[in-house]
Simulated scan of single mutants.
Amino acid sequence: MNSSQWLKTAGSVKNLSQRISQKSEFTLATTLRTDNNKQADYARIISISADSLRRNFTISQLKKSLDIRLRTPLTGENGSDIKLRIPHVFTDNKSKKIIITYSRGIVQVYIDRIQRYYSFNLLELIPLQQKLFSYAMIFIPLGAGLAIINLFIKNRMILSKVLLMSGIFFPSILLEAILISETPKALSLKNIFLGILFTAVTMLIFRLRVEYLKARS
């Protein structure tokens, strides 16, 4: 195979893609070598894709690095929102035995021997901007809802304080517990604090706005 010769399935691999999507896991084993370790652009090696902008899975070469793209809700339609790259793979023209596994948000890669092992946790690789947006979409509406509920029970001091404390802290802790149970990730106090911060700040802004409107009227 070279730049002008490819192997391509005769028909769609829709059934394969659907099975992988349902199970959220797969294993790929391949032996390959390159005749050009100065490849300047992404050279696709194995790919399940409709075109260059829509792909389910791709392994490719970028100079001496092995690049992996996997379509998930976290990595986007083209699998490019989170970069999975292993350097110094194509340092020579010898054949490489590569095994790639995916399960529960974890990508594991073995190259030539079990000792040369790489692991990527997609949840821990989410870009900060994307993580902030996701937490804002979850906890800002929660904070606004708690602030509205608090307006109706503000005369019940004990109930109001219990609601505020549980509403601020519990959802963030619960979300982190769910993420830990669904993926083999470690506890992140930063994630918990981020959820608490969005909830508390939203509630504070909402209450200050209400007080401002009351003062004007």
Rank of each mutant, 00 (worst) to 15 (best):
N36Q: 11
R55V: 04
G105D: 04
Y110S: 03
K63T: 10
K161D: 14
A43V: 09
V210P: 00
N15Q: 15
E176S: 10
L213C: 12
Q108W: 00
S160T: 09
L164Q: 13
K161I: 15
L32A: 10
A215M: 14
V89Y: 00
I138E: 08
F198Y: 11
G195N: 09
F120L: 04
A40R: 14
R207D: 14
A177N: 11
R19S: 09
V210F: 14
L16T: 15
S49A: 15
Y110V: 10
S166Y: 11
L151P: 00
V210E: 12
M203H: 10
R209L: 12
M137W: 09
K8D: 07
N93C: 04
S12A: 07
R216S: 11
A215N: 15
F90P: 00
L74E: 05
N78C: 02
K38H: 13
S4E: 13
V89A: 03
S80A: 12
I148F: 12
H88E: 13
G167Q: 02
W6P: 01
L174R: 09
I153F: 07
K63P: 00
A147R: 05
T75S: 11
A29H: 05
P171Y: 04
T58Y: 00
A29K: 12
R55W: 01
R55F: 01
S24Q: 14
R156L: 03
A10G: 13
S95P: 02
I148R: 13
L125E: 09
T9Y: 07
T91V: 14
R116Q: 09
G167A: 06
S65P: 01
I149G: 01
A136F: 13
I82A: 01
R19L: 06
K64Q: 15
A29P: 00
V162R: 10
R156S: 08
L66T: 00
L62M: 05
K161P: 01
L208E: 15
R71S: 06
F206N: 10
M157F: 12
S80H: 05
Q130S: 12
T202P: 01
T30D: 02
L66K: 00
S49G: 12
A200E: 03
K63Y: 07
L142R: 06
I126M: 05
I86F: 03
I98N: 02
Y118R: 06
Y212C: 09
H88Y: 06
F139S: 03
Q108E: 10
Q129M: 02
Y42E: 11
I178E: 15
K190L: 10
L70K: 01
I140S: 08
T27H: 03
Q18N: 08
A50K: 08
L175D: 04
S17I: 11
I192N: 09
V109H: 03
I106P: 00
I205F: 13
L146C: 03
P87R: 14
S49E: 11
